[in-house]
Design a protein around this nucleic acid. Structure first.
Length: 278
DNA sequence: GGCTTCGGGAATCATC
DNA sequence: CGATGATTCCCGAAGC
């Protein structure tokens, strides 16, 4: 670290950590402007650089914007006592009061995502955080090339669904991106998604092949590349007619309400995230 | 009954 | 080595 050269003050552990993140950010920026596939630390992102039998365009993205790990309160939220299904049973205070503060409807896409990594990252040690499934899914959702596999059901609410016909393709892309030995299937990917239900990062919506991002996760991820979509939500599209609430949110079933029921000020959350509620 | 989807247990692997 | 996250395999239930 350059800053460590005769510092006028004693660097705290936090400073060191922040500087580490800052260095990571610099690295990311550099790689983003040079060769996105040259960093061994990004092996997940280069695994498909040479073979893309499935045409997984997003697999070649540098996913920097998806792991900024801003000091989102999500981890506070998920660190709450889980029990069986804390989403349904935990106290109202488990929701971070700060979540709705920054509306996903804001033109957050204008923010420079490259600078996000300078903020504290919930990881330990050196190295870069692994790409996580929900990050990949969010990435895929923003990729028009994957629209035949996964689509937003409601961007404002973070609900999305897999296209039954091509969901296996998305799963295979995910598996290839991770460099799995065996072929990833939707079954296995869905198993991982169900694990998210425990941490609350993604929950299953009572609708076929439909899931929902944790609003905090959505906020963190959505601010990167979903700006336009988030500003223009509620535009169901795609095949199958399985997109979007056919009627009202109630069609999502209890899960829908259990999710937003965690907001003490539900109306504020809606109004802060959904232009329709303004 | 067959198929698809879903939910979860458990073991295992990979990474940090 | 432990924690964490993901993968893999398996089983059973439910809905169409």
């Amino acid at each position: 670290m350059v800053l460590a050269e005769g510092p006028p003050y004693k660097m705290s552990a936090l400073d060191t950590d922040i500087n580490q993140h800052f260095q990571d950010a610099i690295d990311v920026i550099q790689h983003h402007s040079e060769s996105p596939y040259s960093d061994p630390g990004y092996k997940y992102y280069e695994t498909l650089g040479t073979h893309q039998p499935l045409g997984c365009q997003i697999s070649c993205y540098l996913v920097t914007p998806t792991h900024p790990d801003t000091p989102s309160p999500v981890y506070d939220w998920t660190s709450a006592p889980l029990g069986s299904q804390h989403l349904q049973s935990s106290g109202q205070q488990s929701w971070p009061p700060g979540v709705p503060e920054v509306s996903v409807g804001q033109p957050v896409a204008l923010e420079p995502p490259q600078f996000y990594p300078v903020l504290p990252v919930p990881r330990h040690g050196k190295g870069r955080k692994k790409l996580r499934l929900y990050e990949y899914l969010h990435e895929a959702l923003s990729d028009p090339a994957m629209a035949d596999s996964i689509q937003w059901t409601d961007t404002a609410n973070g609900t999305f669904h897999f296209v039954s016909k091509n969901k296996e393709r998305l799963a295979e892309c995910w598996g290839q991106r991770k460099g799995n030995r065996k072929t990833m299937t939707y079954q296995k990917m869905a198993r991982a998604l169900r694990n998210y239900s425990r941490s609350g990062e993604i929950i299953k919506v009572r609708r076929k092949l439909t899931y929902q991002f944790n609003p905090a996760i959505l906020q963190r991820l959505g601010g990167i590349d979903q700006g336009p979509q988030l500003r223009a939500p509620a535009n169901p599209s795609g095949p199958g007619g399985a997109q979007g609430p056919p009627g009202e949110p109630a069609s999502y079933g209890p899960d829908w309400y259990s999710w937003y029921g965690h907001y003490p000020l539900q109306e504020q959350w809606f109004s802060a995230t959904d232009p329709r509620h303004l």
